[in-house]
Simulated assay, not measured.
Amino acid sequence: MCTPLGPYGPCDDSDAPYVKEIAERAVADHNKSAGTNYTLVSIVNCESVVVSGTNYRLVLSLKDDSTTSDFLVVVYYRPWDNYLEVTQFEPVTK
Rank of each mutant, 00 (worst) to 15 (best):
Y18K: 06
D12Y: 04
S69W: 10
V49N: 09
T36Y: 11
G35P: 12
S66Y: 08
T67W: 10
E47P: 01
S14I: 13
A23M: 07
S42D: 15
V27H: 00
T93V: 08
A16K: 02
E85I: 00
S52H: 14
Y56M: 15
L72N: 02
N45Y: 05
C11N: 09
V49F: 02
D70R: 06
L62D: 06
P10K: 06
A28M: 00
N82V: 04
L5W: 07
I22C: 04
I22E: 00
Y18C: 07
G6W: 02
D13Q: 09
G6N: 03
Y76T: 08
S61V: 05
I43E: 01
S33Y: 11
Q88C: 13
T68M: 00
D64Y: 06
H30V: 04
L40E: 00
H30K: 01
N45G: 14
T87G: 12
L60V: 07
L72K: 07
V50I: 12
K94Q: 10
D29L: 14
D64M: 14
F71S: 04
E21I: 04
D64H: 12
T54V: 13
V75M: 11
I22R: 05
V51W: 13
Q88Y: 13
D13Y: 10
Y8W: 09
P4C: 03
I43T: 13
K63Q: 14
Y38S: 04
N82D: 14
D29W: 05
P10W: 09
T68H: 05
Y38D: 00
D70P: 02
K20P: 07
S61E: 15
V75D: 15
S61D: 15
N45K: 15
S52C: 14
N82S: 13
P4T: 13
S42E: 12
D81V: 10
A28N: 02
